[in-house]
Nucleic acid binder design. Sequence first.
RNA 1: GCCGCCGUAGCUCAGGUGGUAGAGCGGCGGGCUGUUAACCCGCAGGUCGUGGGUUCAAGUCCCACCGGCGGCGCCA
Length: 459
Amino acid sequence: MGTLTRSEDRALPASISDVLSGSVPEGRKVRIRGWLSNRRSSGGVVFLIMRDGTGWLQCVARRDVLGDKKLDELEKLPIESVLELEGSVRADKRAPGGYELSIDRYRILSVAWPDYPIAKKYHGPDFLLEKRHLWIRSKKMWCILIVRSKLLKAARSWLDEHGYVEVQAPILTASACEGGATLFPVDYFGRKAYLTQSWQLYGEAFIASVGKCYTLAPSFRAEKSRTRRHLTEYWHLEVEIPFCDLKCLLKVIDEFITHICHELADKAAEELRTLGRDPADLARVEPPFPRLKYDEAVEMLQAEGVQIEWGEDLTWTCEKVLASEFDVPFFVTHFPKTAKAFYHKPDPERPEVTLSADLLAPEGYGEIIGGGERIDDYETLLARIREEGLDPADYEWYLDLRKYGSIQHSGFGLGVERMVMWVCKLDHIRDAIAFPRLVRRRSSWSTTMMPMAYALVRS
RNA sequence: GCCGCCGUAGCUCAGGUGGUAGAGCGGCGGGCUGUUAACCCGCAGGUCGUGGGUUCAAGUCCCACCGGCGGCGCCA
C-alpha cells in the first residue's frame, strides 16, 4: 500500500452524479452534501440513501467504524434531514447504481421534523398535488424536471444555432389572439386587460426587426377543460419566421423536433428509462415526418367509423385515433378555415382551407404543435377579422404590419408540457410541470405561489 | 358546460341485507452486522367530507351542498 499524499487524503467535494458516473476512482475520499431520502438498518450497518439534486446514492454507516453512539444517531435521523458525509467511494453490485459511499465522518446540517408526510408507499393524486412542494423531491418528478430542462435546452440551442433571436412580449394584453380560446380578465387600473394566450401576434411584429425569432413564455387559457392534457397556465415555445411558406415551416419543425428527440435520447436516456420511455423511441424520429392533409385525415377517420363532418376541427377522439396509427410525430395540414383562427392564410388554390399545420405526437398523445402560414395581405386580414366578428380597432397595430413591408411568413407554437408528456410517456399533463395550474384545484401552495396576475383576477 | 365514480386514522384502503370501527404503510419504543418501498415484536392514533331527513338505532338508507378522480366537449 502506497503512502497517501496530503491532497489524496483530503476529502474531495463531489456530487452524487460524479460518484455514479464512475469518474471518482474507487477508494478516493469524497465529501457529499444532500438530503436523506431513505434509511434502512440491520443491526450493525445503516444504509442512508442520499439525494443531492444530481442523483441518489447509497451511503453505508458501520457500527465498527463509527461506534454505537454515532450509529444510533444516524439510525434515528428523520427522513429529509440534511447531511454532509465524508467517506470513500466503492463499487458494489448490491448498491443501487453500482456505487456506494463508506462513511468515515458526518455532519448533520439540518434535522427534519419526524412526520414527513410522504410515505414509502402509493399515494393518490389528490394528496400528491396537495403536497406538491415536497413531491417534486421524488425520483419520478426529479426525472421529469431533468428531462424538461434538457428538452428546453435542446430547443434553445437548435434555435440559437439556426439564427433565431429570443425576444419577450407582454403577458398582460388588451385583446384576444386566438378566436375561440377564453381569456382570463385582469383589472388594469380600473380597465380590463387579459392574460396572454399567445405571443404570436407580437412575434409577427418582431420579424421585421430581428428576423427569425422565438419566445418561451407562459400562456393562459380560461377554458374549463376537464381533461388530462390541459393546464390553465402552460409554457408556450413560439417561433416566427419571415420569408417562409408552409412547406418551409414543415421542414423547420421536422428538424427542430428531430434535434430535440435525438438530444434527449442521447443526454437523458437514464431519466427516460426510469420513466418508462425507451430512448430508442426518440432516437428513431427522423425527418421528414409523415404529412397528412386534413381531407385525408377526415377520410381515414370516416373509414374507421368516427363521426366527423368536413369543416369541423379534429376532436380529441379524432386525434387519438390518428395518433395511434403512427409511432413517430406526424403533420395534419390544410385545415378548413372554419376550424382555425382568423390569421391563418387561405390556400390560394382552395380558399376554403388554410395553409395550416398541426404536429401530433404518436401513441395517442395528439397535438403538440399548432402553426401555419399567416395572412400577409391587408385587405384579406381585415376581411377575416370582420368575418370572425372581431373589432378591427383592437387589431390596428397588427393590421399596420400588413401596411409597412408585409411579407410571406409562418410560425408555430409548441405546448411544452404536451411535448414533455409525450417524451416522458406520462399519463397526465399535471406531471409535466412542477406546479400545475388546473381548473378545479386550488392547492395550499397556490396561495403563496400564486402569481400576481392571479391575485388580480381573483379580486 | 355535460356524463360517471369516489370521500372512514397522517397516507392507501376494508367495513354483504342498518346494531356507535379494522388492516397495511407512516410515527413512537424495542430487535436484527448488507439492506433494496428491508424485515420482525410492541404502542399510540378516528366528532367515518358538511348539513338535514328516515329509524329504537346510520360509516351503512334518502336529499342537498362541498371537495376529489375519470371520460366527453373546447384547445397547445
